[in-house]
Design a protein around this nucleic acid. Structure first.
Lengths: 218, 218
DNA sequence: TTTAATAGTGTAAAAAATACACATTATATT
DNA sequence: AATATAATGTGTATTTTTTACACTATTAAA
């Protein structure tokens, strides 16, 4: 008697200055018609990491996203049929890479949709709890991970970077101090390129210098 | 068909200047005669948190320890019978509270024994991997948690506190700077008591001021 | 009384964090 | 062409935190 369990994916992105989370509208028992994190059963002969990638793809259309384990939930009442353990994973994706791709390829789910993290409805199962844990983890790791850069376009403005910090920390930051701090970190590459398509002064673009980042943290 | 899985407990303490981990010598298939983290199957009608407390007690004799979830492991090959998912928990205990109590009350395990974290043998299942993750978590959280104080006697010397920091971080620290930093944190209560039974100058004892600690982190 | 072992202490320098306001620039509007 | 709009980009002074560094004090045992 082997383990029978599900995985769930908490997928964040950043768009129009807001932190967003990807949810599915369920088309199946239980919690049919409810919004839920993309998730499903792991196959018997499938490694959990394969499963979570497959399931993320089937339920959202997203491929090759980097999912990291968040938490296991095993409450006896989390599923109407009894305890079904789930392992929740978390991923960060660039909105530009995925904006036209979020569409389930199974019909277990009716649609996939980005929600502002502050406007998430009551979700199926214990998914609101998982979301809360995910946001806390994002906050804890903000300064020690590339999370902000995975979620931004590859070339980003300092204002965008600051917006992520503010969204994740839930507080506003001083622009000058933020910029000073970021450039002192030493792993931002200043580009000779500027924002386009804005009706005001275009901001300079930056990208993450991964080599320097890795030197600092490994 | 509900979830069938195990929990494992990674239990740390601090003794004689060393960080230690509690392991069982297994008396049952699989990995009979191997050392392993205390762990066993969760009962069908038992919440996971209850299970992990029960199992910690049955395999080590320790009660009322605070266990926090670390990671779920679900490798297809982690168990010879096929995938048995396990959820690993982590706890920190005071050596003085438990020194005479680590004894299994089931006979699934032959004995429970403290190992220096640097002298852990090859363990059953994927327990060496779990240990590594636990040590990393300990390190990440060192400055933001009461971990060091849970693992020390309630009244401790600053040298003991420093030894924990050094053991967890794996580097030596400057005594004066360490003491300055700790007293600046503002949540150490200086007692009018001193170490006894040492054959050299007795050090002053301190304890954690939990109220002040909580004010800072909540 | 001497030895051994650890406790306990201060200062100067460097680095990082904070508080704070205005001129600049690109586009859109009239 | 002039103006309005909206966001960009920048500096300094102050405070706080971190770092580097070495000797005297105290206790018990020999």
């Amino acid at each position: 008697m082997l383990s029978f369990f599900t995985v769930d994916c908490l997928i964040f992105t950043f768009h129009e200055g807001k932190l967003k989370v990807l949810l599915n509208e369920r088309n199946e028992y239980p919690y049919r018609d409810w919004w839920a994190m993309p998730g499903y059963f792991v196959d018997k002969q499938e490694e959990m990491e394969e499963a979570v990638n497959r399931i993320a793809y089937e339920h959202t259309g997203l491929k090759n996203i980097y999912l990291e384990q968040l938490v296991a939930m095993a409450g006896l009442k989390r599923h109407p049929e009894g305890r079904i353990l789930t392992v929740a994973y978390m991923a960060l994706v660039r909105y530009d890479d995925v904006k036209n791709k979020v569409k389930p390829v199974t019909n277990y789910m009716r649609q996939a949709k980005w929600f502002d993290v502050n406007e998430v409805p009551e979700l199926a199962f214990d998914h609101n709890d998982i979301l809360k844990l995910g946001l806390e983890k994002l906050k804890r790791n903000l300064n020690y991970s590339t999370a902000s850069f995975e979620i931004l376009p590859e070339k980003f403005t300092l204002t965008q970077l600051q917006q992520i910090y503010e969204a994740v920390l839930g507080e506003t930051l001083d622009k000058r101090n933020f910029r000073k701090r970021m450039s002192n970190l030493g792993y931002l590459k200043e580009l000779d390129e500027y924002q386009t398509g804005v009706s005001y002064r275009a901001a300079r673009l930056y990208k993450l210098d991964k080599r320097k980042f890795l030197k600092l943290f490994a």
